[in-house]
Every structure is written in structure tokens, then in C-alpha cells.
Design a binder for these strands. Structure first.
Ligand SMILES: [Mn+2]
Ligand SMILES: [Mn+2]
Ligand SMILES: [Mn+2]
Ligand SMILES: [Mn+2]
Lengths: 150, 150
DNA sequence: GCATAAAGTTAGACAGTGCTAACAATCTGC
DNA sequence: GCAGATTGTTAGCACTGTCTAACTTTATGC
């Protein structure tokens, strides 16, 4: 009974505990998925609009060079989000399609929200493209509710 | 006079023109600065709260290892945002301090906005930490206005 | 003031994202 | 069906951001 615990203030026992540390860790996690999210969302869009997703069109849309796209597509294939054959256009796996759908949904909600707040569509598109990767489901729900009742 | 311009639809003349390509380019640009922004904001905070910013405290707050911080600090020094001496704590340059202030302002506005929307403070902190790097000045103005009149 | 603990640096690995240059495959228009 | 244009791949470079391991320096407590 004479024992006492001499410094539980920072509690580094079982992980971070500090909510701001957790915030940074969550953001780092989100950053690791951003590019894959943009790719699958764009691939789904290209398939829908043009019937197929070609590296050259992905590159043009993203504003990067084709070899950059090629390398990233290799990674996405390795991660099971797309399938591809040499010199052919790209397809989404079931996993990739599900992720694309989720991303499109987030993109749409954020975009509509920003516009309903009063932002011009171009700036809204620009901001949404970045913000979409960093909104929790809770925030998304609030955004959707606001956009609907305004 | 019989001449005509045969395809000005996509106008690839002096850059992207497609607003979505511009959006992606802007986002890539923002992504390049995110980490530096988080660092200077945190360094300013530590200096304010603890009197100094030590690599070990930066590492703890961010949830990364000290050598990771050390290497990143080298980059920030190279870029003129901080000054540092071996084995000593870190100082902001005038440029760094200005950036920190700007980041803190953005962080605060986004955070207050999310909370005033109805989000719980923990989730708000988490989302703000990511969103703050992707909000235009215009969006920020709308966020601030909303938070003030709600 | 000295031994030990804490903090910081350096080196090296590895993956990601971008680029250019060179080459290979595919597509297109005659 | 072939030549030339377009598209795609590969290799190689640069930089960032993360880690661990090994070492050095600084700070702390007796
Ligand atoms: Mn995006
Ligand atoms: Mn998007
Ligand atoms: Mn942040
Ligand atoms: Mn912040």
C-alpha cells in the first residue's frame, strides 16, 4: 500500500494516449493512401467516361508523366487494387472498385458541401481534391447534412 | 482568312487548362509542404509551451522516431525555416516563424469551424490536422464566417 | 566530478513519387 | 500491310520520409 506510481502524467504505457499524437499518426496513415485513392477514383471515372483507363489519360489528368503513372500502377497492382497486362489499359479489382466508389462518395459530399457553403466551383473542386482524404465519417455526415438542408 | 484553328477544345498550349488537372497539381504542391508546416507549427508551440523545441519532444508529439526528426530538421534548416546547432534545440527563422503563424491560424480556423459544425473535439482535432493543409484562403474565410455566426 | 541516463547524430536500408532518356509495342492512315 | 505516330515500359537518378543500429554528446544525480 505504500507503493505509488510516480509519473502517470504522460502515460507512455500502451501507445500514444496524447490525442494530438494520435492525430498526427492518423494523418500520416491517411497520407499513405491519398495517391492510391486519387488513382482508383480517376480510373473508375475514365472507364465510365471513355470505356477504358489508359496510362496516357491518367497521366494527362493528373498532370504527371506517363512513366510516373506506370510505376504507380505497378504498386496498385501489387496491392490488389487493379489488374493490368503489358501495353494494355487498366482494370479495377473488386477491392479497387469498392475503394473507388467510397472515394467518389467522399469527393462528392465534400464538393457539394463546399459549394453549398458559398465557394465557387473551381476552388471547391481544388480544395475537395485535397480535403477528401482527410475527413472522418463523422465529419462527412455533418457535411452531407449541411449541404442537404441549405 | 481561310485558315482555322482545328482543335482548341483542350487548349494544351500554355499549361493544363483542365481545372481538374490544375486541382491535382495544386494538391501535389500542397502535399510537398505539409510536413514542413506541421513541423514549424509544432516547433512554435513547443517553444511557447516549454521554452524550447527539442528533437525528442518533436518526435514524441509526432509519433515518429528521433532520427526521423533529425533528418527532417536538416531539410528544414536547408530550406531556411529553422536554425540549429549540433546537440542543441531548434529555433525558427523569421521565415519559419511567419509560416508557423500562418499554419496556426489555419489550424485554429479549421478546428473551430469543425467544432461549430457539431463535431466532437477529438475528431475535430484529428481532421483539422489533415484538412488545414488543403484549404484555400477563400474556404478559410467561409469557415471563419460560419464559426463566428453560429 | 564522475558514472549513468537521456538525448542527439550518423550511417545505411527500404519504399514511394517524381523526372528524363532510351527502347518496345501498338495503333492509324494511307 | 507498312511507315510513322502514339503509347507504354524499363532503367536510372534525385529526393523524401520512415526505420534500426551504433555511436557521441550532453545532462543528471549522487
Ligand atoms: Mn484527391
Ligand atoms: Mn477526388
Ligand atoms: Mn497538419
Ligand atoms: Mn496543425
Amino acid at each position: 500500500m505504500t507503493e505509488f506510481h510516480p509519473d502517470t502524467r504522460t502515460a507512455p504505457l500502451d501507445g500514444p494516449a496524447d490525442p494530438r499524437t494520435e492525430a498526427f499518426q492518423g494523418v500520416r496513415e491517411a497520407r499513405r493512401n491519398e495517391l492510391a485513392e486519387d488513382y482508383v477514383e480517376l480510373i473508375a471515372e475514365l472507364i465510365h467516361e471513355q470505356g477504358e483507363a489508359r496510362p496516357v489519360d491518367i497521366a494527362t489528368r493528373l498532370g504527371v508523366k506517363v512513366p510516373t503513372v506506370s510505376k504507380t500502377l505497378d504498386r496498385l497492382a501489387r496491392e490488389g487494387l487493379i489488374t493490368r497486362a503489358k501495353y494494355r489499359s487498366v482494370f479495377l479489382t473488386d477491392t479497387g472498385r469498392a475503394l473507388a466508389k467510397e472515394c467518389r462518395r467522399r469527393h462528392e459530399i465534400v464538393l457539394r458541401f463546399l459549394i453549398s457553403l458559398g465557394l465557387d466551383p473551381e476552388t471547391a473542386e481544388r480544395d475537395a481534391e485535397g480535403i477528401e482524404h482527410h475527413v472522418s465519417e463523422r465529419t462527412l455526415a455533418l457535411f452531407a447534412a449541411f449541404a442537404n438542408r441549405s
